[in-house]
Amino acid sequence: MRSRTLNIFLFIIVVLLAVLPLAFVNGEFGGADNAAEQLIQTLHPSYEPWFSSLFELPAETESMLFALQAAIGAGFIGFAIGYFKGKASRSKSE
């Protein structure tokens, strides 16, 4: 396969991996915290949490912190890949 054809093929696969799960989801996405809370209420209705948060962050702030965490992780992974690739190419040229 030529390089361009391979890139187009990989791009289509990535788009399908991102879009198909969204097309087959019935209802809305729920977080793991909500699912766990519902399961606990179903299994043990009289359960009372022994701890509650001191303050609740707005949903926008939680989303922003999650996106910031993802960006920092992606930056770290990108830096590591670039560092090791540069180190490997430097050792080949010597």
Rank of each mutant, 00 (worst) to 15 (best):
L17V: 11
G30M: 12
L54D: 10
L6S: 14
F55A: 05
G82K: 04
T5H: 08
A59D: 14
K87T: 13
H44C: 04
E37A: 15
A74I: 01
S46G: 09
I77Q: 00
K85Y: 14
L39E: 07
N34Y: 09
L43Q: 02
I12A: 09
G86F: 03
V14D: 14
L16Y: 05
V15A: 05
V19R: 00
G86D: 00
S53H: 08
Y83L: 09
S93E: 03
S3L: 14
P45E: 09
A74T: 02
F76E: 03
E94D: 08
A36I: 08
E48Y: 01
W50G: 06
G82W: 05
L17E: 13
R2T: 09
S91A: 15
E28F: 10
G73V: 13
G82A: 11
A36R: 08
R2W: 06
A80M: 06
F11N: 11
L65R: 01
A88P: 11
S93D: 00
F11Q: 11
A23M: 07
L16W: 05
Y83Q: 07
E37V: 14
P49M: 02
A70H: 11
P58I: 00
M1E: 04
P45T: 09
T5W: 07
S63V: 07
Q38W: 13
V14G: 11
I77E: 01
L65E: 01
F9M: 11
Q41T: 12
M64F: 14
F51P: 00
L16I: 05
R2N: 10
F24I: 03
G73A: 15
S52R: 07
F66G: 08
L6G: 13
S52K: 09
P45N: 10
I12D: 03
F24L: 06
